Amino acid sequence: MTLFAPPAPIIAQTSEGKGFPVRRLFCIGRNYAAHAREMGKDPTREAPFFFTKWADTVVPSGSTIAYPPETANFHYEAELVVAIGKGGRNIAEADALSHVYGYATGLDMTRRDLQFEARDKGRPWDTGKNVEQSSPLGLIHPLTETGEITKGRISLTVNGEVKQDADLTELIWSVNEVIAYVSRFYRLEAGDLIYTGTPAGVGAVVTGDEIVISVEGLTPCTVTVGPKADD
């Protein structure tokens, strides 16, 4: 007997109409040089770094997401998302693609003021990044449909105005490198999502704004910012 019912799993959707149970999120930081600079850091290929988010931060395209509490600077970050379909530890870069189920457009919404406060104090970023409804996700397109994605436009608009516009060739660490690196620290499992980083041009949104994230060859992801969250 359990004290209460366990929460329902988060099921993302694929372009084939199948459910994709989400397990964990790994998010790569400062993976575009121009974005690293706008965050006040010099870009480097010394090593990737990443943070994690809960699976239940994922919401589907078409959602209205609540403006979260304790922030006055809620930022968008457009991302190419990699969906893992086969587990493994210490995955070689040459084998990384065999662990990919597919790709999706995604969004890493951030309480930027709380992130910067934590960063400046040398504290974890959880309150800035691991936020309810902060990981909108478009349809996951299987690798068999798209082939390996290594280039193509990634962009984001707010109310129709282009705010982020780059190419996936600008990634500092490729998808294969990122998979290999993360798998050194955690055994990747089917259902894991890797958010691969955002280009320059991040900025704040307010209630009522519509955000559209596009990656060439994938279905766009659209969300609307709703009123402030309440209990």
Rank of each mutant, 00 (worst) to 15 (best):
Y67D: 00
A94M: 11
G203E: 05
A190R: 11
A166L: 02
A66E: 10
I10N: 00
N130Y: 05
D231T: 08
R153L: 11
G197E: 07
D126C: 12
L193H: 01
A180P: 10
N31M: 02
T146M: 02
T198C: 13
A83C: 15
N176R: 15
G203T: 09
T157A: 03
D126H: 14
R112Q: 10
C221K: 01
V58M: 06
Y186Q: 15
G217R: 02
D230S: 14
K151N: 11
V131F: 09
D126V: 10
I172T: 14
I179A: 09
P142W: 03
G160P: 05
E46F: 12
F4G: 11
G88M: 07
S61N: 01
E170I: 08
F26S: 03
V81L: 04
K18R: 05
S134L: 07
M39K: 15
G29S: 12
E145L: 06
K86M: 09
L168T: 06
Y103M: 11
E117V: 14
L139I: 07
I213D: 04
G102L: 10
V82W: 04
S61D: 01
D113Q: 09
F74L: 07
A229M: 14
I10W: 00
E161I: 14
T144W: 08
P69H: 13
A118H: 11
I211M: 15
I28D: 02
H141F: 14
T71P: 07
T14I: 03
A190Y: 03
Y181D: 03
G208V: 10
Y67A: 02
A200Q: 08
V175G: 05
V215K: 06
G160C: 10
E70H: 15
L168I: 14
T169L: 08
V182I: 13
P6D: 11
G201L: 04
N159K: 11
G147K: 12
A118G: 13
A34W: 06
L168V: 14
S63N: 07
T64S: 05
K41S: 05
R112H: 14
G87M: 07
G29K: 13
G40K: 06
R37K: 15
G208A: 11
D113E: 13
P6F: 12
L168P: 09
W173Y: 08
C221F: 06
K163T: 08
A166G: 08
K41G: 09
M1D: 13
Q13L: 12
T14Y: 03
N159F: 08
F20D: 02
V206M: 11
D108Y: 12
A200N: 10
H99C: 03
T64L: 08
